[in-house]
């Protein structure tokens, strides 16, 4: 190689330029493209980590400050529903993995099946979440002007609190349950929002998968979506014990 020229390396790489139809113009090779895409997706998830990180920071501070309120408020959540949701989401994570696997093996039918299954599990998850939200709204546990302290200052009036064996909280502590529910709705709401976005993309993928978009060797999109979906799962894995399981004994 001559010591001082900006020479092109067309000769060296000529063999590589068979130009896969999925290779974007800016990349030199499929591997470079795959690497870049994968890295970009992880970087995006990194921003998501920081996004939820802000919420977890807030949670950490207030849980330490208002522990008794957090305990009582957390008892209002149903471990059963939360547990079911955890399993649902983990299952949807599994079906997503299987979807990616099907795409890689170019099995169109099973890809569509698993994507739809993932979507369905997401719907059920959100449905259950909706039921939980509805209950909170009805009991005026949604923060804001209508927030009610009834279940905390007078747990006897609330079967859920009775079942959890809650003792009445003094007013000033009970008021702090609103902080808990602010966080509960912010965190699960942001999580649900991510799921809704994800399910929109799932629908889009199901639609496109029918015309063989991912089963002819170009599985990147499904894989990247899989990363996103698993990430949403990871967030829930932390949300579940932190929000539902505070001092249950």
């Amino acid at each position: 190689m001559s010591d001082s020229t900006v020479i092109a390396h067309d000769g060296l790489e000529a063999g590589h330029h068979e130009h896969s139809p999925h290779l974007h113009h800016q990349f030199e090779s499929v591997e470079q493209q795959a690497d870049a895409g994968n890295f970009a997706m992880w970087l995006f998830l990194l921003t998501e980590v920081m996004f939820f990180g802000g919420l977890f920071t807030v949670y950490m501070i207030y849980r330490n400050w208002y522990y008794p309120a957090f305990v009582a408020a957390s008892h209002q959540l149903s471990v059963k529903l939360g547990g079911i949701n955890s399993v649902l989401l983990i299952t949807s994570s599994l079906t997503m993995t299987l979807g990616v696997w099907s795409a890689q093996l170019r099995r169109k039918g099973s890809l569509i099946f698993f994507l739809m299954l993932t979507f369905l599990l997401g719907v059920v998850f959100l449905g259950i979440k909706g039921v939980e939200y509805k209950e909170k709204f009805e009991k005026h546990h949604f923060p804001g002007a209508n927030y009610s302290l009834q279940s905390f200052v007078n747990p006897a009036s609330d079967p859920v609190a009775v079942a959890a064996g809650d003792k009445p909280l003094p007013l000033d502590i009970a008021q702090r349950t609103e902080v808990y529910f602010s966080l509960y709705f912010a965190m699960t709401g942001m999580h649900a929002l991510h799921m809704i976005v994800g399910m929109g993309i799932l629908l889009f993928m199901i639609f496109r998968a029918r015309s063989d978009a991912y089963t002819t060797g170009h599985t990147a999109f499904v894989e990247y979506f899989g990363l996103y979906w698993h990430f949403v799962d990871i967030i829930w894995i932390f949300l579940f014990p932190l929000l539902y399981l505070i001092n249950r004994h």
Binding site: P68, L169, P170, L171, D172, I173, Q175
Partner: peptide, 20 residues
């Protein structure tokens, strides 16, 4: 005065109401 229940002196019952 504002959040008495979190600041109860040992040996006393948490009966003071909040003046918030």
């Amino acid at each position: 005065i504002l959040n008495p229940s979190q600041n109860i002196t040992q040996g006393y019952a948490p009966i003071m109401p909040t003046y918030q």
